[in-house]
Protein backbone atom coordinates (compact mmCIF):
# COMPACT_ATOMS: atom_id res chain seq x y z
CA UNK A 1 0.00 0.00 0.00
CA UNK A 2 1.26 3.35 -0.96
CA UNK A 3 -0.47 6.59 0.03
CA UNK A 4 0.76 9.95 -1.04
CA UNK A 5 -0.29 13.35 0.21
CA UNK A 6 -3.93 12.42 0.90
CA UNK A 7 -6.20 15.36 1.56
CA UNK A 8 -9.82 15.23 2.65
CA UNK A 9 -12.26 17.82 3.94
CA UNK A 10 -15.79 17.51 5.23
CA UNK A 11 -17.26 20.86 4.35
CA UNK A 12 -14.91 23.42 5.84
CA UNK A 13 -13.28 20.99 8.21
CA UNK A 14 -10.01 19.66 6.82
CA UNK A 15 -9.68 16.17 8.25
CA UNK A 16 -6.65 14.95 6.33
CA UNK A 17 -3.95 17.49 5.57
CA UNK A 18 -1.60 15.48 3.42
CA UNK A 19 -1.08 11.98 4.74
CA UNK A 20 1.58 9.77 3.18
CA UNK A 21 2.20 6.22 4.26
CA UNK A 22 3.94 3.20 2.83
CA UNK A 23 3.05 -0.30 3.93
CA UNK A 24 4.94 -3.19 2.42
CA UNK A 25 3.74 -6.74 1.90
CA UNK A 26 3.51 -8.73 5.11
CA UNK A 27 3.77 -5.71 7.33
CA UNK A 28 1.41 -4.83 10.17
CA UNK A 29 1.03 -1.14 10.82
CA UNK A 30 -0.96 0.32 13.70
CA UNK A 31 -2.37 3.80 13.43
CA UNK A 32 -2.93 5.50 16.74
CA UNK A 33 -4.03 8.98 17.65
CA UNK A 34 -6.75 10.92 19.46
CA UNK A 35 -10.30 10.88 18.11
CA UNK A 36 -10.78 13.42 15.38
CA UNK A 37 -7.20 13.02 14.23
CA UNK A 38 -8.35 11.57 10.90
CA UNK A 39 -7.19 7.98 11.31
CA UNK A 40 -10.58 6.44 10.54
CA UNK A 41 -11.11 8.77 7.59
CA UNK A 42 -7.69 7.83 6.25
CA UNK A 43 -8.28 4.10 6.48
CA UNK A 44 -11.67 4.55 4.80
CA UNK A 45 -9.99 6.40 1.94
CA UNK A 46 -7.83 3.34 1.33
CA UNK A 47 -10.84 1.38 0.04
CA UNK A 48 -12.61 4.44 -1.29
CA UNK A 49 -15.50 4.34 1.17
CA UNK A 50 -14.47 7.94 1.62
CA UNK A 51 -13.49 9.97 -1.43
CA UNK A 52 -10.27 11.84 -0.94
CA UNK A 53 -10.02 15.35 -2.33
CA UNK A 54 -6.47 15.04 -3.57
CA UNK A 55 -3.49 12.74 -3.33
CA UNK A 56 -3.16 9.17 -4.52
CA UNK A 57 -3.46 5.74 -2.99
CA UNK A 58 -2.25 2.52 -4.53
CA UNK A 59 -2.84 -0.99 -3.27
CA UNK A 60 -1.05 -3.91 -4.86
CA UNK A 61 0.04 -1.55 -7.61
CA UNK A 62 -3.51 -0.48 -8.50
CA UNK A 63 -4.62 3.08 -8.11
CA UNK A 64 -7.66 3.11 -5.80
CA UNK A 65 -10.85 4.90 -6.73
CA UNK A 66 -9.33 6.92 -9.53
CA UNK A 67 -8.02 6.61 -13.03
CA UNK A 68 -5.09 8.49 -14.44
CA UNK A 69 -6.09 10.76 -17.28
CA UNK A 70 -3.10 12.80 -18.37
CA UNK A 71 -1.96 14.63 -15.30
CA UNK A 72 -5.32 14.40 -13.67
CA UNK A 73 -7.00 11.76 -11.56
CA UNK A 74 -10.67 11.13 -12.40
CA UNK A 75 -12.97 8.95 -10.35
CA UNK A 76 -13.07 5.41 -11.65
CA UNK A 77 -16.19 3.51 -12.71
CA UNK A 78 -18.26 1.75 -10.09
CA UNK A 79 -17.32 -1.60 -11.60
CA UNK A 80 -13.59 -0.93 -11.29
CA UNK A 81 -13.86 0.45 -7.79
CA UNK A 82 -15.81 -2.64 -6.76
CA UNK A 83 -13.12 -4.85 -8.29
CA UNK A 84 -10.37 -2.95 -6.46
CA UNK A 85 -12.21 -3.44 -3.20
CA UNK A 86 -12.13 -7.21 -3.58
CA UNK A 87 -8.40 -6.95 -2.92
CA UNK A 88 -8.90 -5.00 0.30
CA UNK A 89 -10.55 -6.53 3.34
CA UNK A 90 -12.25 -4.20 5.79
CA UNK A 91 -13.22 -4.88 9.38
CA UNK A 92 -15.49 -2.28 10.93
CA UNK A 93 -15.81 -1.01 14.44
CA UNK A 94 -19.45 -2.06 14.54
CA UNK A 95 -18.94 -5.40 12.71
CA UNK A 96 -21.65 -4.70 10.10
CA UNK A 97 -22.45 -8.37 9.70
CA UNK A 98 -25.46 -9.15 7.53
CA UNK A 99 -28.11 -10.01 10.13
CA UNK A 100 -30.26 -11.97 7.69
CA UNK A 101 -27.49 -14.45 6.98
CA UNK A 102 -25.82 -17.04 9.16
CA UNK A 103 -22.16 -16.78 10.11
CA UNK A 104 -21.29 -19.00 7.16
CA UNK A 105 -23.74 -17.12 4.94
CA UNK A 106 -21.92 -13.90 5.78
CA UNK A 107 -18.56 -15.40 4.95
CA UNK A 108 -19.50 -17.01 1.62
CA UNK A 109 -21.74 -14.19 0.37
CA UNK A 110 -19.06 -12.22 -1.45
CA UNK A 111 -16.94 -15.13 -2.70
CA UNK A 112 -20.05 -16.65 -4.31
CA UNK A 113 -21.74 -13.51 -5.56
CA UNK A 114 -18.78 -11.28 -6.33
CA UNK A 115 -15.94 -13.62 -7.24
CA UNK A 116 -18.20 -16.31 -8.67
CA UNK A 117 -16.71 -19.10 -6.55
CA UNK A 118 -18.70 -22.34 -6.65
CA UNK A 119 -21.00 -22.67 -3.66
CA UNK A 120 -19.57 -25.93 -2.26
CA UNK A 121 -16.05 -24.62 -2.69
CA UNK A 122 -16.97 -21.41 -0.87
CA UNK A 123 -18.62 -23.41 1.91
CA UNK A 124 -15.39 -25.35 2.35
CA UNK A 125 -13.36 -22.15 2.46
CA UNK A 126 -15.86 -20.44 4.77
CA UNK A 127 -15.95 -23.36 7.18
CA UNK A 128 -12.16 -23.41 7.29
CA UNK A 129 -11.96 -19.66 7.92
CA UNK A 130 -14.56 -19.78 10.67
CA UNK A 131 -12.56 -22.60 12.19
CA UNK A 132 -9.45 -20.47 11.98
CA UNK A 133 -11.12 -17.68 14.00
CA UNK A 134 -12.36 -20.27 16.49
CA UNK A 135 -16.01 -20.39 15.49
CA UNK A 136 -16.29 -23.81 13.88
CA UNK A 137 -19.32 -24.57 16.06
CA UNK A 138 -21.16 -21.37 15.11
CA UNK A 139 -21.34 -21.62 11.33
CA UNK A 140 -25.13 -21.87 11.26
CA UNK A 141 -25.73 -19.21 13.90
CA UNK A 142 -27.22 -15.83 13.02
CA UNK A 143 -25.24 -12.72 14.07
CA UNK A 144 -27.99 -11.71 16.51
CA UNK A 145 -27.21 -14.76 18.62
CA UNK A 146 -23.46 -14.14 18.71
CA UNK A 147 -21.53 -12.08 21.22
CA UNK A 148 -19.72 -8.95 20.03
CA UNK A 149 -16.39 -10.73 20.05
CA UNK A 150 -17.79 -13.63 18.04
CA UNK A 151 -19.43 -11.26 15.57
CA UNK A 152 -16.17 -9.42 15.03
CA UNK A 153 -14.37 -12.69 14.43
CA UNK A 154 -17.00 -13.63 11.82
CA UNK A 155 -16.42 -10.21 10.25
CA UNK A 156 -12.70 -10.94 10.07
CA UNK A 157 -13.38 -14.31 8.44
CA UNK A 158 -15.75 -12.63 6.02
CA UNK A 159 -13.07 -10.17 4.94
CA UNK A 160 -10.44 -12.92 4.68
CA UNK A 161 -12.71 -15.01 2.47
CA UNK A 162 -12.00 -12.65 -0.41
CA UNK A 163 -8.30 -13.43 -0.20
CA UNK A 164 -7.37 -9.78 0.14
CA UNK A 165 -3.89 -8.40 -0.41
CA UNK A 166 -4.46 -5.93 2.42
CA UNK A 167 -6.62 -6.01 5.53
CA UNK A 168 -7.92 -2.81 7.07
CA UNK A 169 -9.17 -2.75 10.65
CA UNK A 170 -11.10 0.31 11.78
CA UNK A 171 -11.01 0.28 15.59
CA UNK A 172 -12.03 -3.39 15.62
CA UNK A 173 -12.26 -3.66 19.39
CA UNK A 174 -13.71 -0.26 20.33
CA UNK A 175 -17.31 -1.47 20.36
CA UNK A 176 -16.53 -4.60 22.35
CA UNK A 177 -16.97 -5.46 26.00
CA UNK A 178 -13.58 -5.60 27.71
CA UNK A 179 -13.79 -9.32 28.39
CA UNK A 180 -14.10 -10.26 24.69
CA UNK A 181 -11.47 -7.88 23.30
CA UNK A 182 -8.79 -10.48 23.91
CA UNK A 183 -10.31 -13.13 21.65
CA UNK A 184 -10.45 -10.70 18.73
CA UNK A 185 -6.93 -9.42 19.27
CA UNK A 186 -5.68 -13.00 19.44
CA UNK A 187 -7.10 -13.70 15.99
CA UNK A 188 -5.52 -10.51 14.67
CA UNK A 189 -2.15 -11.36 16.21
CA UNK A 190 -2.26 -14.73 14.49
CA UNK A 191 -3.02 -13.06 11.18
CA UNK A 192 -0.12 -10.66 11.65
CA UNK A 193 2.20 -13.51 12.55
CA UNK A 194 1.08 -15.39 9.43
CA UNK A 195 2.28 -12.48 7.31
CA UNK A 196 -1.01 -10.81 6.45
CA UNK A 197 -0.57 -7.22 5.37
CA UNK A 198 -2.59 -5.21 7.86
CA UNK A 199 -3.36 -1.62 8.71
CA UNK A 200 -5.00 -1.36 12.09
CA UNK A 201 -6.54 1.72 13.62
CA UNK A 202 -6.55 0.92 17.30
CA UNK A 203 -5.95 2.08 20.82
CA UNK A 204 -4.79 -1.35 21.91
CA UNK A 205 -1.13 -0.69 22.63
CA UNK A 206 -0.72 -4.25 23.85
CA UNK A 207 -1.62 -5.45 20.38
CA UNK A 208 0.69 -2.89 18.80
CA UNK A 209 3.56 -4.07 20.97
CA UNK A 210 2.99 -7.75 20.18
CA UNK A 211 1.99 -7.67 16.54
CA UNK A 212 2.91 -4.41 14.85
CA UNK A 213 6.03 -3.87 12.80
CA UNK A 214 5.43 -0.19 12.88
CA UNK A 215 3.26 2.31 14.70
CA UNK A 216 2.05 5.54 13.18
CA UNK A 217 0.80 8.43 15.28
CA UNK A 218 -1.75 10.74 13.69
CA UNK A 219 -2.81 14.08 15.05
CA UNK A 220 -4.91 16.80 13.50
CA UNK A 221 -4.93 15.28 10.02
CA UNK A 222 -1.21 14.55 9.81
CA UNK A 223 1.18 11.75 10.63
CA UNK A 224 3.35 13.28 13.29
CA UNK A 225 5.46 10.34 14.34
CA UNK A 226 6.34 6.93 13.02
CA UNK A 227 8.43 4.15 14.45
CA UNK A 228 8.68 0.70 15.95
CA UNK A 229 6.36 -0.14 18.88
CA UNK A 230 9.42 -0.07 21.16
CA UNK A 231 10.21 3.43 20.05
CA UNK A 232 6.74 4.54 21.07
CA UNK A 233 6.93 2.88 24.45
CA UNK A 234 10.43 3.98 25.28
CA UNK A 235 11.17 7.29 23.68
CA UNK A 236 8.39 9.01 21.79
CA UNK A 237 9.78 12.22 20.37
CA UNK A 238 6.72 14.32 19.97
CA UNK A 239 5.02 16.02 22.92
CA UNK A 240 1.58 15.25 21.51
CA UNK A 241 2.52 11.59 21.26
CA UNK A 242 3.69 11.53 24.86
CA UNK A 243 0.50 13.25 26.02
CA UNK A 244 -1.65 10.84 24.04
CA UNK A 245 0.17 7.74 25.22
CA UNK A 246 0.07 8.83 28.85
CA UNK A 247 -3.71 9.06 28.54
CA UNK A 248 -4.31 5.64 27.02
CA UNK A 249 -1.67 3.56 28.75
Amino acid sequence: MHAENVHKSFGKLEVLKGVSLEVTKGETVCIIGPSGSGKTTFIRCINHLEKMDSGRIEVNGHLIGYRQRGDELVEDSERNIARQRTEIGMVFQRFNLFPHKTALGNVIEAPVHVLGTKKDQAVGLGTALLGRVGLADKIDTYPGKLSGGQQQRVAIARALAMGPALMLFDEPTSALDPEVIGEVLEVMEELAAAGTTMIVVTHEMGFARKAANRVVMMDDGLIIEEGTPEHFFEAPRHTRTRQFLSKIL
Binding site: N47, E78, R79, A82, R85, N96, A110, V114
Partner: peptide
Protein backbone atom coordinates in the same frame (compact mmCIF):
# COMPACT_ATOMS: atom_id res chain seq x y z
CA UNK B 1 -20.50 -0.07 3.42
CA UNK B 2 -19.79 -3.65 4.40
CA UNK B 3 -21.31 -4.90 1.15
CA UNK B 4 -19.29 -2.42 -0.90
CA UNK B 5 -16.08 -3.18 0.94
CA UNK B 6 -16.59 -6.80 -0.12
CA UNK B 7 -16.61 -5.71 -3.74
CA UNK B 8 -20.34 -5.53 -4.36
CA UNK B 9 -21.73 -2.90 -6.65
CA UNK B 10 -24.50 -0.64 -5.48
Amino acid sequence: EAAKSLGMRH
